[in-house]
C-alpha cells in the first residue's frame, strides 16, 4: 500500500523545474533543538488532524466496526434496536455467502465486468486524451466538456436513454449495426449479451474521468522527445508506443486502480437497467449484497460487503505490485 506514496511524487509533472520534495516519507533535516521542534510539530500536526480524526472516528470508524461485528452475528433487521441481543455465529455468514450459488454467480459476473470493462474504459479514455492533447489545437475545451458530460449526467436519464439505445428492433446501436449488415442482438433481453451491453454503457459513462487524468498525465510527456523521434523517422504509432506509453505508466496504473475499485463495486448499471437479469446474468456482488440488506439479512449482507472489501484490497495490492516491478 505504502508503495503508492513513494512512487507517485517521483513522476515529473512538468510544473516547471522546481525541485520537488520526495514526499512524506523523508524526514526533515534534523537541526539543533530538534526535540522542541519535534514536539511543536507533533502538536501542530495533531491540531490540524483533529477535526478530521473526530469526524472520521464517529462517522466512519465506528460504523465500520459495528458492521464488522454484525458480520459475525445472525443480525436481522428486527435486531437493530437491540444490536447486542444477537447470537455470534462465527464464520457462518461467510460460508453461507460462498455456498450461495447466486453470490458465486455474482462474483463471476463482477470479474467479467472488471476484466473486460477496465481495459475498454481505459482504452477509450487514453484514445480520447491523446487525440485531444496532441492531435488537435482548436476546440479542445468543447470536446473535453462533451466527453465529460456522461460523467455528470444523472444515472436515471442515462438509464432511460440507454434502454432505448440498446433496444432490439429500433435501438440506435442495432440500427447502426444493421447498416453494415449485422443483425444486432437483443442486448438486455439475452443472457449472453446483457453484460456486454452494460459494459459498453459503463465505459461510456466513465471514460471521461480517465480521459481527464490522462490529459493531465500527458502534460508530463515532453514534446521535444516526440519531435526528435519524428526527425529520426519514427511514425506516430511508434512514438506513442515507445515514448508516450512508458512515460504514462504511473498514470495508467492510477487510472486502472481507481477504475478497478469502482468497477469491482459496480451497482448502478444493473440496478437501473436490468435488475440483475436476465437469469442473473448481470447481478453484481454489490447489488446482491444490497438485496440482502433489503431482505433484512444484515449479518449476511455485512459479511458479503467484507468479502467485497477483501477482494478490492487484493486486486489493488496486485496492481501496486505490478507497478513496483515495472518502474
Amino acid at each position: 500500500m505504502s508503495s503508492t506514496t513513494e512512487v507517485t511524487p517521483s513522476g515529473a509533472t512538468g510544473r516547471g523545474s522546481s525541485p520537488r520534495g520526495k514526499g512524506g516519507d523523508t524526514r526533515p533535516a534534523s537541526n539543533p533543538g530538534a526535540g522542541a521542534s519535534r514536539r511543536r510539530q507533533g502538536l501542530a500536526a495533531w491540531t490540524l488532524a483533529l477535526p478530521f480524526c473526530l469526524l472520521f472516528l464517529v462517522f466512519t470508524a465506528w460504523p465500520v466496526i459495528q458492521s464488522l461485528f454484525m458480520s459475525f452475528t445472525d443480525t436481522r433487521s428486527r435486531d437493530l434496536r437491540t444490536p447486542f441481543a444477537v447470537d455470534i455465529v462465527g464464520l457462518d455468514n461467510f460460508t453461507k455467502a460462498f455456498s450461495d450459488p447466486i453470490f458465486r454467480k455474482s462474483m463471476l459476473n463482477t470479474a467479467y465486468f472488471v476484466v473486460v470493462g477496465v481495459p475498454l474504459t481505459m482504452a477509450m479514455a487514453l484514445a480520447a486524451a491523446v487525440a485531444l492533447d496532441k492531435g488537435i489545437t482548436k476546440l479542445r475545451g468543447l470536446f473535453r466538456l462533451g466527453f465529460y458530460t456522461p460523467v455528470i449526467t444523472s444515472i436515471v436519464a442515462v438509464a432511460v436513454v440507454w434502454r432505448f439505445l440498446l433496444e432490439r428492433d429500433y435501438g440506435l446501436i442495432n440500427t447502426v449495426l444493421g447498416w453494415v449488415g449485422i443483425d444486432g442482438p437483443n442486448w438486455l433481453g439475452d443472457p449472453n449479451w446483457a453484460m456486454p451491453g452494460l459494459i459498453l454503457m459503463a465505459s461510456w459513462r466513465n471514460f471521461g474521468t480517465g480521459m481527464i487524468i490522462f490529459l493531465a498525465g500527458l502534460q508530463a510527456v515532453p514534446w521535444m522527445l516526440h519531435e526528435a523521434a519524428a526527425i529520426d523517422g519514427a511514425g506516430a504509432w511508434q512514438r506513442f508506443r515507445h515514448i508516450t506509453l512508458p512515460l504514462l505508466r504511473p498514470t495508467l496504473l492510477f487510472v486502472s486502480v481507481t477504475t478497478a475499485i469502482g468497477y469491482l463495486q459496480f451497482f448502478e448499471e444493473p440496478f437501473v437497467m436490468t435488475n440483475g437479469g436476465p437469469l442473473n446474468s448481470t447481478i453484481s456482488m454489490s447489488m446482491y449484497t444490497y438485496k440482502q440488506f433489503g431482505f433484512g439479512n444484515y449479518g449476511l449482507a455485512s459479511a458479503m460487503s467484507y468479502i467485497i472489501f477483501v477482494i478490492v484490497a487484493i486486486v489493488t495490492a496486485i496492481q501496486f505490485r505490478l507497478l513496483r516491478e515495472n518502474t
Partner: peptide, 24 residues
C-alpha cells in the same frame, strides 16, 4: 434503543465485543 450518546454506545459495543456478552 433509547437516545444514547455515541460515546455510550461505543462503550457498550466495546464491552460486548470483549465479553461476547451477546445472545438472543
Amino acid at each position: 434503543m433509547r437516545r444514547t450518546s455515541a460515546a455510550a454506545v461505543a462503550t457498550l459495543t466495546a464491552a460486548a465485543l470483549a465479553l461476547s456478552a451477546c445472545g438472543r
